[in-house]
Design a protein around this nucleic acid. Sequence first.
RNA 1: GGCGACGUAGCCAAGUGGUAAGGCAGGGGACUGCAAAUCCCUUAUUCCCCGGUUCGAAUCCGGGCGUCGCCUCCA
Length: 505
Amino acid sequence: MPVKVYNTLSGTKETVQPPPGGRFTMYTCGPTVYDSTHAGHLIPPIVGDVVKRYLRSLGYEVYWAHNFTDVEDKIIRRAQEEGTTPEAIAERYIAEYLEVLEDLGIDTVDVFPRVSQHMDDIIAMIQALVDKGYAYAVDGDVYFDVTRFPGYGKLSRRSLDELEAGARVQVDERKRNPADFALWKSAKPGEPSWPSPWGPGRPGWHIECSVMAYKHLGYPVDFHGGGIDLIFPHHENEIAQSEAFNDGRPFVRYWLHNGLLKMDAEKMSKSLGNFVSARELLDRYGPAVLRFYVLSHHYRSPREFSEARLEEARRAQRRLQAAYDGLRDALDRAAAAGDGPPGAAAGAGSAAAGGEVAAAGGDGAAALRAAAREAREAYHAAMRDDFNTAEAIAALFDLAHAVNTCIHRGEASGPGGAEALRAALAVFDEADAVLGILRRGPAAAARDDGLQRVVDGLVELLLQVREEARQERDWVRADRIRDGLTRLGFVVEDTPAGPRWRWEP
RNA sequence: GGCGACGUAGCCAAGUGGUAAGGCAGGGGACUGCAAAUCCCUUAUUCCCCGGUUCGAAUCCGGGCGUCGCCUCCA
């Protein structure tokens, strides 16, 4: 079952050819760490995480490098403004970013290379480009000569003529061609610098990624990802450098670009100042809802950010979560009720074929089993088609509906009920091991601190009192307890099996 | 100005030739002491507009209109 991806380079969907040995490499452009991580930054790592997890679920290995740009003009400026060092600035925002990834459940990145740790390799690659005649040094700067690389413009589909026509910046007279870009920039007084054959300076913006991809993954890289705004000039230049360095051999096999997050119809960006902090969103919505929000759109689509959209995602995720939780409850009850022979309760123990026959009596179980099978197929079909997570999630909603219906009709406890529930649970778990949009595992695992246990105990106690009031048909007191808990963020639901509660601040 | 992408119900959003997924919101009903959750029913003869190709198009082609991105740092 082949996976297809939309490759920016070819402009078409292509069938992914697994590399020899079944080990993929993936490189994604991480942030320039001069300011806080914003909501838009979450998309590439979430998409990368899903790509890696999905391929892994198919039995492949994926080695993923996600870089930090920690040497850059804006970091230097920021350091000067705050009277500290660029390293301190970078360190601060790298720590914040890593914490955000961790809280999002992204533990799939294998290496986080940094520019500052690859100076020797960067200088070596620049030197090689100079030696091969693709680059030239002028007054301590080194530029890449785009006219020497025939494929220049193939990713962003533009020609050098178009680029010159559209040039809006003042052309540096020392460049041979206006589109030439810097590989090495000489340091101005007071700026951090590294020694080089061309004098003290620092790398240009693009060379770092070519170098770090080469060093950590080797060429060709199987998947290279990032925001669609990086196609030009960043990725275009990476191709030029890397393929020139590699004597024309391909740099990347599949280019994956994600759509941008917009804010008030403009792209969210640090330079525009219209961004929302990722940390804040994470604290307010939690990883499951945030991932749900990101993955409920196709990764290539642009999406509009707003509180209303996130609230909507929260409600939608809650529906999925409720079905999942209900499923696990039902399984627990089935296990507790009669762990015994699955068919015994209904006395439908006929025989081997009994499972199917008995199901005819109330074929909720059979329907659920069929729904689980269909959902699993639909999930894989969606994921294989350019990682269409929106469609994959739709398959889970269909399954959620089937689960709810089965439980609602009381057919989950019938013959084969538990088996069907387990089949459904297996599909949710399989899909969610990739998507990460459900809160799973025993709730207790997340509550290991003493205070939390006290709170749980108090809520349980209040609910017991409320149950006593309800027994006495003292609705006033019962509602007072429930309303009070609701105001504190505890949602209480009465079910045939007793009251259930959850904390939803 | 050039290059690229997009325009699907009140809203979000899948869907590249076969007769419109899924979600949110809304309406009606069931269940409930009342709720919540859940279930049942309901919400686009139509996919920005105009032409064309085809037995057949949201899907292909041409032309408009609109929005966004890139051409300068940017996930």
